[in-house]
Amino acid sequence: MKEINLTVNGKKHRIKIDENMRLIDLLREKLNLLGTKEGCGEGECGACSIIMDGEVVTSCLVMAFQAESADIITIEGLEKEDGTLHPIQQAFLDEGATQCGFCTPGMILSAKALLDKNPRPTRVEIKEGISGNLCRCTGYNKIVDAIEKAAILLEKGGN
């Protein structure tokens, strides 16, 4: 056993972990943040994507102890406390960019990491930004549409 400190969705945690625990297991089983999904367990599908210190990582390939002192954002950290959706979530909803929904949390977080660095990306840049996230339902066009729309919403002064 080992104890680590980390911040998840703005909240500080001190958590006991097993040395062989993955970050995705810490999030899902220790913190009950079940929006982070496991699709392949080997970093290929991107369903477990989260933002760690500003970068998108696949949480199935990060060991929990590597998150010592890290600042992590999961899908649960995007909504405001009053339930208002983040503009990226709103755009995904409005554009029909979610179908089965299993890729959606990871996809939205990859979009956030992209838009945080590049507020008005081209469609090609958006496609590159989500190239680590597989979606088997939509064919991606609606997802790219949603991220384009989110960029505009954010520019107009979303959160």
Partner: peptide, 11 residues
């Protein structure tokens, strides 16, 4: 809007 859209974009 999909009936299950909200639950999916929020995880």
């Amino acid at each position: 809007i999909r009936v299950d859209g909200l639950s999916k974009v929020t995880g």
